[in-house]
């Protein structure tokens, strides 16, 4: 089972890597997808049945989740190239690997890919936040992140 999951992750990452030249748009915010680089993954891949849909950031995925009626798997780029944080929505409930934390501090969607991200550890979060001018950001667990995204606008 574990081997099968690993194969899926590798397959999806291979898919993302082969699409480096593609310049699609996020289905939610309509801004350009940010391509992976050799130092950092950026493409968020949502798997839903036979669909594999790319989003600009994890915020956009969660904000757009209502259109998908059954279970979801989301490959959210992390601090490590080729090792996404795998989120799952099963029977409507989101789960993420233990220890994963989220950054969500953007104010304009132009910055969402940079400032709405997943990390496998809190240390990785702190390191990234420092490099991207988000030192004051609080690391969010999955429930806090989803609640923040779904919070009604004032």
């Amino acid at each position: 089972m574990k081997i099968k999951s690993m194969f899926l992750v590798v397959s999806l990452l291979g898919l993302a890597a082969s699409s480096a030249a593609h310049e699609g748009e996020c289905p939610f915010c309509k801004l350009k997808l940010v391509q992976n680089t050799k130092d950092q993954d950026n493409e968020v891949v949502l798997k839903f049945g036979n669909k594999r849909i790319e989003y600009r950031c994890v915020y956009c995925v969660v904000k757009d989740q209502a259109r998908y009626k059954t279970d979801l798997v989301v490959y959210a780029p992390s601090e490590k190239v080729g090792e996404p944080v795998v989120l799952k929505r099963t029977d409507g409930k989101w789960t993420a690997p233990a220890g994963s934390v989220f950054l969500n501090t953007f104010t304009k969607h132009a910055n969402c890919a940079e400032l709405s991200r997943a990390f496998s550890t809190k240390d990785a979060f702190t390191d990234y936040a420092k490099k991207h001018g988000a030192e004051s950001a609080k690391p969010l667990n999955l429930d806090e992140f989803v609640a923040m995204v779904n919070k009604p606008a004032n």
Partner: peptide, 16 residues
């Protein structure tokens, strides 16, 4: 056939 997926072609170019 419906389960296959080769992703986005490297030949794709969006007019910017």
């Amino acid at each position: 056939w419906g389960k296959l997926n080769h992703g986005k072609p490297v030949t794709y170019r969006k007019i910017d």
